[in-house]
Design a protein around this nucleic acid. Structure first.
Length: 448
DNA sequence: ATAGGGGTATAC
DNA sequence: GTATACCCCTAT
């Protein structure tokens, strides 16, 4: 895959909120292979699809498809399945079944069909393949649901449970964690490396003191201009998303800089091997010229890609959503929009959002699904500390270095949330961090 | 050992 | 004021 393909793809996947074209279409428009970069892109794509589905309030069997695809992709890059993933699958499957329990009694064929389709067939396949998605909880739900078929009382009880909220919570959590695991986009990586290189060159022979100094790499790359991105955004005619999910990538812009001139070929990091093609040779070494040309090129490319995938937006979508669920109980997936600015950008996309909505909805609106209040977190106030105001010396504040963060991501991929294992797995990097530090930092990264 | 509430410093 | 990053405390 051309490097520009990858950048454009990342661009769409990480920055575009509620896109008119499904990321799946984008991914198939570009031909992706099986390199680790491509897997990351595919994962981003699936995550974006899940996110969009969540934003639309659609929790259907398409979501189960996505979760299954995601499992396979994660397996390919040898990271273990997160609990949030398993729980999300379990509760989504249940929610999908619950959608067909709107009649008062189980006599309706829809429920039996759903049981057969979801639990016997779909999950049966998962069992055969030994998938980790098959958890005790899942099996419990399976037996409960099947029991409910002949047990009106149990049927009622399940029917009145708000599965949907739980499913949404786990899906949201899954998204957060997976976005955090993905880490920097390749644009950012290139930008950071180039910044380091430039800094090293500027210092001339005096090798950069990575130990104490590196935190401002992050800082400084963040301050680079991002005009090129703005141009590209205009090409799309859409605003920046406020979707907090991709906030780590908020500085994608500076990566463009490397289209401009000399050697990205010096960049040897594994994920950029194929980086340099004829692209950068054509450009003048001067900064502005290079930026300008890169921007123009990117803009044309974006338009081309958009044209490529847009017309096909609808045909691949929603193979199995004869019933849309959006009418009833909808705890808004607000957690998805962390920054709260995510509401502004529906203007462009709104024209084809409502297309399929009008006809079949009324039939289903008669369903009664009880609304459960949003669980409130009870605040326990220990009020322990009375007098005795001990001065207490705090450990000095140490900012996390990029390589520490990267090591943490790798650690979570490998061990899950076993902070002790992560620390022991990389004692050198985490020498000055406690397990609690790792936990706290991860909490920061996922934005919880 | 881990999760989660809370404190403090800092930037906007 | 809010938001963020880091650090601390404590219940489980």
């Amino acid at each position: 895959m051309e490097v520009i393909d990858q950048w454009v793809a990342e661009f769409f996947l990480l920055r575009q909120h509620n896109p008119r074209a499904s990321p799946i279409n984008l991914i198939s428009a570009l031909k992706l292979g099986d390199s680790s970069d491509c897997i990351k892109l595919k994962i981003s794509s699936v995550l974006r699809d899940i996110s969009n589905s969540l934003i639309r309030g659609t929790i259907d069997e398409g979501m189960l498809d996505l979760l299954e695809i995601l499992e396979k992709l994660l397996l390919q890059q040898h990271s273990l399945l997160m609990d949030s993933h398993k729980s999300a699958y379990c509760w989504t499957a249940t929610e999908c079944t619950l959608r067909f329990m709107w009649p008062m009694f189980a006599s309706d064929g829809l429920f039996t069909d759903a049981l057969e389709r979801i639990w016997t067939k779909r999950i049966g396949i998962l069992k055969e393949s030994g998938s980790d998605l098959v958890t005790c909880d899942l099996l419990k739900w399976e037996s409960d649901l099947k029991k409910a078929l002949g047990d009106p009382e149990l049927y009622q009880r399940i029917r009145e449970t708000n599965i949907r909220y739980t499913a949404i919570s786990f899906l949201t959590q899954l998204l957060k964690e997976q976005w955090a695991l993905l880490g920097s986009s390749s644009l950012e990586s290139v930008a950071q490396r180039r910044f380091l290189k430039r800094k090293a060159v500027n210092v001339e022979g005096d090798v950069v003191d990575n130990r104490g100094d590196q935190s401002d790499v992050d800082e400084s790359t963040r301050r680079f201009g991002s005009d090129t991105i703005d141009i590209a955004n205009e090409a799309r005619g859409e605003r920046e998303d406020g979707n907090g999910i991709g906030r780590d990538n908020a500085n994608d812009g500076e990566g463009m800089e490397c289209l401009e001139n000399d050697g990205i070929d010096n960049v040897n990091a594994a994920d950029e091997e194929h980086t340099v093609s004829a692209q950068d040779q054509e450009h003048e070494p001067t900064l502005d010229k290079g930026d300008e040309m890169a921007a123009r090129e990117l803009k044309e490319y974006l338009v081309e890609i958009q044209g490529h995938i847009d017309p096909s937006t609808r045909q691949g979508e929603e193979p199995n959503s004869a019933i849309d669920h959006s009418v009833d109980v909808t705890p808004p997936p607000t957690r998805v929009n962390r920054t709260g600015t995510g509401c502004q950008d529906h203007n462009e996309a709104s024209d084809n959002v409502n297309e399929k909505g009008s006809d079949s909805q009324e039939t289903w609106s008669s369903r009664v699904r009880p609304r459960r209040p949003t669980p409130v977190t009870l605040s326990v106030s220990p009020l322990k500390k009375g007098g005795l105001a001990k001065p207490h010396v705090r450990r000095p504040k140490k900012f996390w270095k990029p390589e520490e963060v990267e090591a943490l991501r790798e650690g979570v991929k490998e061990y899950g949330k076993s902070w002790k294992d992560i620390k022991n797995g990389n004692p050198a990097v985490f020498a000055e961090r406690t397990e609690v530090d790792l936990k706290d930092k991860w909490r920061n990264l996922v934005g919880g």
